[in-house]
Design a protein around this nucleic acid. Structure first.
Lengths: 211, 211
DNA sequence: ACATGTGAAGCTATTCACAGCC
DNA sequence: GGCTGTGAATAGCTTCACATGT
């Protein structure tokens, strides 16, 4: 299979396009143009066409893109045609909020395991899943064939637990703890840090105020 | 004041550098080199030097960067020398998790108001702050001189509430709802969407599996 | 006529490499 | 000798503009 070198930035926009297309589908639009997608996604038509062209020749000249077919194609590119098996490490307030959030299952992600280190929580129900001990991390991840792990752990223990997660063969981590994770080559990490985002917003406020 | 055109990407890295420097400060390092920062931040030394050069000539040739002074300088650039006044709209599970998260106040953000639409919640205590009705949004934002608003609302009502938030003069929004916000010019928005992040991770898994 | 797909141009960001300073 | 600051070179992304196909 060829090394289709899709730009990083394009990959980041594919989920946005997908959301727009699902909206268009709900609105009963059979076909949509690059201009239409661009308006919904907050970008421009040339960008949309270039991005989609990396996935193949998906449109029809003179007509536009078939909504249904394009949803199918982007979903396939994103590897979410079936359900992706996800585990959450750390069932504190944030982990709990995520587990109960219904938006994930709607988008092809199934949270099938939850871990915590607190003996008082272990064995209790977490919104439909039994909380397992972090001691059992490796075995439970393997048993459930987990593909993606979400780290919702205290900063101090995150790297240590992430090491065990990657050691267990996990290749994708969403890190919600405010620490930079070091992982082996071949492991994808996405970092979510709201403090960072607030600081970036603060920068723009500071800039604005002084002009 | 000059139009110091700091690249967007540099701005995004400043909070990362700041975190590294605070770590170095805790470790009692008086001085750090661009190589040292780069290692902690997960980038390269040239990048660090170029980024920091946008803020001024902050280092000393042959020596490196004074940790204390650099922390001071980056904090000033990020506008977080004092406390930034933040409000959360939507006190569901996610909003609750954010309010109770101590990492914000440590980093210069003070959550001084919380809103919800549910009459059962209004007037009750949310971790030290009384929950206010979204009916009072404009007045309470003004009274408390709120600078940044975090939207932790259901997708369906987010745009409508964001319109009122910007109407009240707020210039910075952190949006946790899975919708693309449309805001007037001059308003900064940061979007956090974990479904999107999971989809990006899924893309890399799909790529990997087929090589 | 209309909308895609795509080379080419233009722009932005990263990396290199070395002069300048401690 | 060591490390910063920075012009120059490189790489990567976005936008343009038009040929191509319906």
């Amino acid at each position: 299979m060829e090394r289709t070198q899709i730009p990083e930035t394009t990959i980041h926009r594919l989920p946005v396009y997908l959301r727009c297309l699902l909206q268009a589908q709900q609105d009963r639009m059979p076909v949509i143009s690059s201009v239409g997608i661009a308006e919904m996604a907050g970008t421009n038509a040339a960008q949309v066409r270039k991005d989609l062209s990396y996935l193949g020749e998906l449109g029809t000249r003179g007509i536009g893109y078939d909504v249904e077919a394009l949803i199918e194609h982007i979903s396939k590119s994103l590897g979410i045609t079936g359900l992706r098996r996800v585990a959450i490490v750390g069932y504190g307030r944030l982990g709990g909020a995520l587990k109960s959030y219904t938006g994930f299952s709607d988008r092809g992600f199934d949270i099938i395991a939850v871990f915590d280190a607190d003996p008082a929580k272990i064995g209790t129900d977490a919104d439909g899943v039994i909380i397992r001990s972090t001691d059992e991390l490796e075995t439970v991840l393997a048993e459930n064939r987990v593909e993606i792990v979400v780290m919702a752990t205290p900063a101090g223990v995150t790297q240590e637990l992430a090491d065990r997660v990657t050691g267990a063969g996990i290749k994708a981590i969403l890190n919600l703890a405010p620490v930079r994770l070091h992982v082996p080559d071949g492991v994808a990490v996405r970092q979510v840090c709201m403090s960072t985002d607030l600081q970036i917003l603060s920068f723009y406020l500071a800039q604005d105020g002084m002009k």
